[in-house]
Computed example of a mutant assay.
Amino acid sequence: MDKLSALTMFVATADHGSFSRAAEHLGKTPSALTKAVAHLEGELGARLFERSTRRMALTEAGHIYLEGARQALQNLHEAADEIDQLQSELRGSLRLSAPPSFGPAFLNEASIGFLRAHPQIRLQVDLNEAFVDLVEGGYDLALRDGPIDLPGLIARPLTENRILLCASPDYLQRNPLPVLPETFAQHDWLIYRHPALNRNYWWLRLGEQRLRIEQPAPRLTSDSYDFLLAHLLAGQGLQFCPQWSAAPYLASGQLVQLLGEYRLEPDALGPWVHALYLSHRRSTHKVRAFIEHLTAFLGARGLS
């Protein structure tokens, strides 16, 4: 008997709880499903279902085999999809999760280019701060600057998460006091609040020297990075910004980098932005194509 068909019929029987309902779902006869399950049981030397006149239930061996059968069928489905897509244009859906600040910084433009290059792709992008579970959320990949040592996930670095101190020329003109660690308290500050970031002090490095700097009382705080960025561009204070966000404004002269010889330790957000995807989808052509497109996009802007 065809093993793939037998596995399909076994999984359907387990899902529907009876041979008759599973047979109706698959468009086969109950006897065909009974034979398929019996064939698998004979091959394994173990019963997969406990049967009675009133009910049937998976045995312990059946539960174990069901998990493996589901994964095998999923792998075969994904492999067939991969082969099909290798021979034709990318198509289907791709679900992505990322922090809101990635949108205007680089993801908006990168996604537009990806959709133009692959007109048969349907892209769903959820921008939120929550560190989503890719399996439970049904996501193909996530872009994150937080923890990456998570089971079942592959992390591919995209861009360095270097933090720069920035201000607008207008602010610096109105506040000519030099910006130094010892004068921080005399300047207006725009401070991003995030559960992973320390609220009391920063760690700055100058060569081999590590400085613990008390955070000054902020002029403005927010849990929205883009809200703060708008005020930074409007000349309302100083702000620490990731390089991937500040780069276009530094290039246009809308922002100026300060204390370039210092390095702010990136705290719990980590030194890199990564693309995270499930280990069993390492060969998914759509995921790989999107990551390669995004890597090229960032590289063209000197951010890879």
Rank of each mutant, 00 (worst) to 15 (best):
residue 280 H to V: 07
residue 140 D to K: 11
residue 182 E to N: 04
residue 201 Y to F: 13
residue 132 V to S: 11
residue 260 G to F: 06
residue 103 G to L: 14
residue 206 L to A: 13
residue 221 T to K: 03
residue 197 L to I: 09
residue 298 L to Q: 11
residue 43 E to D: 10
residue 99 P to V: 00
residue 68 G to I: 04
residue 271 P to Q: 08
residue 147 P to M: 09
residue 196 A to M: 11
residue 144 R to K: 14
residue 154 I to K: 11
residue 153 L to T: 00
residue 66 L to V: 07
residue 124 Q to I: 08
residue 89 E to Q: 15
residue 235 G to V: 01
residue 141 L to N: 06
residue 83 I to R: 14
residue 263 R to Q: 13
residue 135 V to Y: 08
residue 7 L to D: 03
residue 213 I to S: 00
residue 232 L to T: 04
residue 286 K to I: 03
residue 51 R to Y: 08
residue 297 F to E: 04
residue 93 S to N: 12
residue 77 H to C: 13
residue 40 L to D: 03
residue 15 D to S: 08
residue 164 L to G: 01
residue 220 L to K: 12
residue 21 R to A: 14
residue 232 L to W: 03
residue 284 T to N: 14
residue 113 G to Q: 11
residue 20 S to V: 15
residue 97 S to E: 09
residue 118 H to M: 08
residue 95 R to P: 01
residue 109 E to P: 04
residue 127 L to H: 08
residue 141 L to C: 09
residue 118 H to W: 07
residue 156 R to G: 04
residue 145 D to W: 10
residue 189 W to R: 00
residue 61 A to I: 04
residue 93 S to Q: 15
residue 103 G to I: 10
residue 301 R to P: 00
residue 269 L to G: 07
residue 123 L to E: 03
residue 46 A to S: 13
residue 25 H to T: 15
residue 213 I to T: 00
residue 302 G to E: 06
residue 93 S to A: 14
residue 159 T to C: 13
residue 288 R to M: 13
residue 136 E to K: 15
residue 258 L to T: 00
residue 29 T to N: 15
residue 34 T to G: 07
residue 246 A to G: 09
residue 128 N to L: 15
residue 17 G to N: 05
residue 292 E to D: 14
residue 40 L to I: 09
residue 43 E to A: 14
residue 297 F to C: 03
residue 148 I to C: 08
residue 169 P to Y: 05
residue 145 D to V: 06
residue 38 A to H: 10
residue 174 R to H: 11
residue 292 E to Y: 07
residue 177 L to F: 04
residue 257 Q to R: 13
residue 182 E to A: 06
residue 281 R to Y: 07
residue 193 R to G: 05
residue 94 L to G: 00
residue 211 L to Q: 10
residue 87 Q to N: 13
residue 190 L to G: 00
residue 87 Q to P: 00
residue 131 F to A: 13
residue 104 P to H: 07
residue 283 S to M: 14
residue 33 L to N: 05
residue 115 L to P: 03
residue 292 E to H: 13
residue 63 H to K: 12
residue 220 L to D: 05
residue 158 L to N: 01
residue 129 E to Y: 12
residue 181 P to G: 04
residue 109 E to A: 13
residue 6 A to C: 11
residue 60 E to Y: 08
